[in-house]
Computed example of a mutant assay.
Amino acid sequence: MERMNNDAAEQQRRWRLVLGMDEDGVLSPEDQRLNQALSALYDVPHGGDPDKGKGSLSRSAPRVSRWLGDIREFFPAAVVQVIQKDAFERLGLKQMLLQPEFLAAVEADVHLVADLISLRSLMPEKTLDTARQVIGKVVDALLERLQRRTSETLRGAVHRARRTNRPRAADIDWPRTLRANLGNYQPELGTVIPERLVGFMRHQKRLVDLDDVILCVDQSGSMATSVVYASIFAAVMASVPVIRTRLVCFDTAIVDLTDELADPVQVLFGVQLGGGTDIHQAVAYCEGLIERPQKTHMVLITDLYEGGDAKALLARAAHLVRQGVNLIVLLALSDDGRAAYDPRMAEAFAALGAPVFACTPDQFPDLMATALRREDVLDWAAAQDIKAVRSSA
């Protein structure tokens, strides 16, 4: 009976929080804070004046900072990011990104980075410095998550058949080394003593023998998250000695960020999010960079909504494929691996023989390894349960 009463009380508490009702003061002080934090956002009519709702965040940066602190206390990071996104859309809080107090309190993720990049030209200098710090934290977290696996996967793809027992530290194949030394496990130390190292043989290749990778990235507003991830991957890939990486971003203009790849934060500050889209012009620029088509892998990251010459774009893409360029079209590089795109253009690219699909950042290293080995990318996508666009012809 006591348990049933407790369950009923908890259910009543949750309904009060959902409906924002506490006229009789039943909620605890902590729940009252939670109720106020949610009411400040969700009691305001969508698109209306936040100051006319039951609650509001107002235009005070310190007050918004306290509100952000409250929601971080009550919810996990993933939920906080959803609430922040709602706040940006419902209350027009993007203006708050111009204030360093707000930036210091906000829960940073790739979506926030995209917002900061798009607003940086409006930021005063002190806010710009804070924005760099916020972006730097997100970049560091992404590098920690993606760098090692990407580097090892790409090295393995190019030199998989060449092994050595005297590798340099950066070229050690740790899984194989551990398997080769399992007999040397030391229980008292809780570790394996590797008497024999196994690693990738570092070829003394001339530059012309390297594989070339060109990331051609649509920086129109709809591709913001993809731009952030692509920039991070380009910086990681540029540090891998077995490939030569270029990063080209475009809307109706083109910016070649290859020379900035040593500093991912600087790369992101070189991106110009927003504007129209001229894919043909960007592909033409990238074609001018290609010296050895059969050693070149071009990843075109775009939703394929072409604002330029669509017919010329398809003709140029067909020419690249005929020359032997490994052309791959990514409709999105995002956490959910889903994309909104032009279906007719996607089908037209698929008809040329170019794989067309979206993928997640965690899938991207394996995608690039498959491309570098010149294996069937569509077979890889099917094995990953990725739905590729098929030609209707």
Score class of each variant (00 low, 15 high):
157 A>V: 08
253 A>N: 08
189 L>S: 14
224 A>R: 13
350 A>D: 07
333 L>P: 01
9 A>W: 07
380 W>R: 07
79 V>W: 12
5 N>W: 06
335 D>R: 15
322 R>S: 10
363 Q>G: 07
187 P>D: 07
282 A>Y: 00
364 F>I: 12
145 R>Q: 15
376 D>K: 09
48 G>I: 05
251 D>E: 13
205 K>M: 13
114 A>M: 01
384 Q>D: 10
375 E>H: 14
99 Q>K: 12
102 F>C: 10
38 L>G: 00
58 S>V: 05
81 Q>R: 15
145 R>M: 13
81 Q>M: 14
255 V>I: 09
380 W>K: 07
353 G>I: 07
213 V>R: 00
10 E>K: 14
90 R>P: 01
288 G>Y: 04
225 T>Q: 10
102 F>W: 12
188 E>H: 11
79 V>R: 14
109 D>F: 02
39 S>R: 10
205 K>T: 08
187 P>Y: 05
209 D>Q: 15
215 L>T: 03
180 A>D: 12
196 R>C: 05
243 I>T: 13
272 Q>Y: 05
358 A>H: 00
365 P>E: 02
305 Y>D: 08
316 R>G: 10
76 P>K: 03
388 A>L: 12
377 V>E: 03
173 D>N: 11
143 L>S: 06
82 V>S: 06
335 D>Y: 10
88 F>H: 09
209 D>A: 10
100 P>F: 03
316 R>P: 04
232 I>L: 07
3 R>G: 02
139 V>G: 01
317 A>L: 09
250 F>N: 00
122 L>W: 10
159 H>C: 04
318 A>S: 11
86 D>G: 02
272 Q>K: 11
257 L>N: 01
337 G>D: 01
66 R>M: 06
240 V>F: 02
129 D>W: 06
390 R>A: 10
284 A>K: 11
306 E>D: 08
346 A>H: 02
45 P>T: 08
240 V>I: 13
6 N>T: 12
338 R>H: 07
8 A>F: 11
3 R>V: 12
58 S>K: 14
388 A>V: 11
64 V>K: 11
292 R>V: 11
237 M>P: 06
203 H>F: 10
334 S>P: 02
180 A>P: 04
193 I>L: 13
275 G>F: 03
201 M>C: 03
119 L>A: 07
388 A>Q: 09
370 T>H: 06
296 T>G: 03
214 I>F: 09
68 L>K: 00
384 Q>L: 07
101 E>Y: 03
288 G>P: 04
283 V>L: 12
211 D>P: 09
226 S>V: 02
301 I>H: 05
135 I>K: 00
2 E>M: 10
320 L>V: 04
66 R>V: 13
222 S>N: 09
295 K>W: 06
295 K>I: 07
81 Q>V: 13
247 L>S: 01
12 Q>R: 12
107 E>Y: 05
311 K>T: 13
